[in-house]
């Protein structure tokens, strides 16, 4: 997995966000074995304790399931995946609307623009 750490937010949060993303976008499929703490820590070049904390967050959200024998696996619960995905989508929309507000577009106008843009893209 590729990690990029750039902002001043806690590192474990940045890692957790990026791993969440890679699960909901299907880079890791449901039921698939997730790499170990140490492997991930090395890939990201971070402290294993930090990676541990990020993985704990993903477990808390139900995206990863720990079994006693097989380590960590991506959840097979479609409902959880759907919920997390739509939560991410909402956050993106919120960001879009905020950015547009800065440019002087009301929420309604911004939404209208998105709709038009989408129409314009279609053949």
């Amino acid at each position: 997995m590729d990690f990029t750490l750039k902002d001043a937010r806690p590192i474990w949060q940045q890692l957790a966000d990026q791993m969440t993303e890679s699960i909901v976008t299907g880079e890791y499929s449901p039921g698939e074995r997730f790499p170990s703490v140490r492997e991930l820590a090395m890939q990201a070049g971070v402290n294993p304790n930090t990676m541990q904390r990020s993985l704990a967050k993903l477990e808390e959200n139900g995206l990863l399931v720990t079994s006693r024998t097989a380590g960590r696996n991506v959840t097979e619960d479609e409902e959880t995946l759907r919920a997390v995905r739509s939560h991410l989508a909402e956050k993106r929309v919120e960001e879009y609307l905020k950015d547009m507000e800065k440019l002087g577009y009301s929420r309604g106008k911004a939404a209208e623009l998105a709709r038009q843009f989408q129409k314009g893209q279609e053949p």
């Binding site: 001043a8 937010r9 806690p10 590192i11 474990w12 930090t50 904390r53």
Partner: peptide
């Protein structure tokens, strides 16, 4: 703790 600096001060350790 390094993460506490980022969490409470909103800046990186370097900053």
């Amino acid at each position: 703790p390094a993460d506490e600096i980022r969490e409470t001060d909103g800046k990186s350790v370097d900053e």
